[in-house]
């Protein structure tokens, strides 16, 4: 690249060159197009005005707020308000209707299910799974086995006040720690575990003493779980005679429960979610598995 001044007039275009030559390619000294230049000036003016009007320059611990006082947080609030406004008609209808009325009305039901699904993903999915499939200790909401009852009203009560929660209206009742607290001996626990498995038709060890187990059961367990192991929804005592096991059906797991007790917690959503959201959640959860088996 030669740097002596080679300025000359280009033969073809009649424009002077800058004198810069690369591989025999000359740079013409064309002026910038006027529209481009003006656009450029306008953007400069714009940037200054923008920096004055809007939040722009970072300071040590804050930033310049801008004379318009605009905030992205407020913009979000405006958007949310608009969304609420858009939904308000349906939301008002939901608020004014009972759960049964909503379920009977296809339009309201569809709206409630959609809203409930979104809310379920935000609030319930961490424990119950994205589709309400549950996990060990967290009930599967798609089946027909409901610890605290599966009618619309019962589901709503459980969502609203929880189980073993901080809310006084929440469900209470726990499985005692028979082993740890010395209420049952080691063999008794083993016997009753075998007996409980037999209630739902699961195979038991050849060494199992079912008669002894039955006695322990009648003395200690039947009060809550029922004489045939059919469970009791008032206390959240699971049905032991069906094929659904919240923690697992292996003997070791049952023994573990007998030793240490059980008592999963469902939090209260009253006050944390508004009434229509709780209604929508109820209808959504209820629609996952339908009612209890008739």
């Amino acid at each position: 690249m030669a740097h002596e001044s080679h300025e000359q007039v280009d033969a073809v275009t009649g424009v002077t060159t800058t004198g810069h030559t690369w591989d025999d390619i000359q740079e013409l000294n064309n002026p910038l197009p006027r529209w481009w230049l003006w656009t450029f000036y306008v953007t400069i003016v714009w940037s200054v005005l923008y920096a004055i009007a809007y939040p722009a320059i970072p300071m040590m611990s804050s930033y310049t707020k801008g004379v318009l006082g605009w905030q992205s947080r407020e913009a979000v609030e405006v958007d949310l308000a608009a969304l609420k406004q858009q939904r308000s008609g349906m939301t008002a209808k939901l608020a004014a209707s009972s759960l049964d009325q909503i379920k009977q009305d296809p339009e309201m039901f569809a709206f409630a299910r959609a809203q409930g699904k979104a809310s379920f993903g935000d609030n319930c999915a961490p424990c119950h799974g994205a589709g309400g499939g549950g996990a060990k200790g967290y009930p599967n909401l798609n089946d027909d086995d409901w610890l605290w009852g599966g009618s619309l009203a019962q589901v709503e009560h459980t969502i609203r006040f929880g189980a073993r929660s901080t809310n006084d209206k929440g469900h209470s009742g726990t499985m005692p720690a028979f082993g740890r607290d010395g209420m049952l001996k080691r063999e008794e626990i083993s016997h009753v575990a075998d007996y409980v498995r037999s209630l739902s038709g699961l195979p038991t060890d050849k060494t199992a003493n079912l008669n002894a187990g039955a006695k322990v059961y009648t003395d200690n367990c039947a009060a809550c779980h029922g004489d045939k192991g059919q469970g009791m929804q008032e206390l959240g005592a699971p049905n032991l005679s069906d094929k659904i096991w919240l923690f697992g059906s292996e003997k070791a797991t049952i023994v573990e429960g007998l030793n240490n007790g059980r008592g999963g917690v469902m939090p209260t959503w009253h006050g944390r979610l508004d009434d229509t959201t709780i209604k929508a959640l109820t209808l959504y959860v209820h629609s996952l598995g339908g009612d209890q088996r008739p």
């Binding site: 799974g129 994205a130 589709g131 309400g132 499939g133 549950g134 599967n140 798609n142 089946d143 027909d144 086995d145 049905n239 069906d242 094929k243 659904i244 598995g289 088996r293």
Partner: peptide, 9 residues
């Protein structure tokens, strides 16, 4: 999710 559900029976 879940792919299938076991019912009480």
């Amino acid at each position: 999710n879940p792919l299938f559900v076991r019912l009480s029976d």
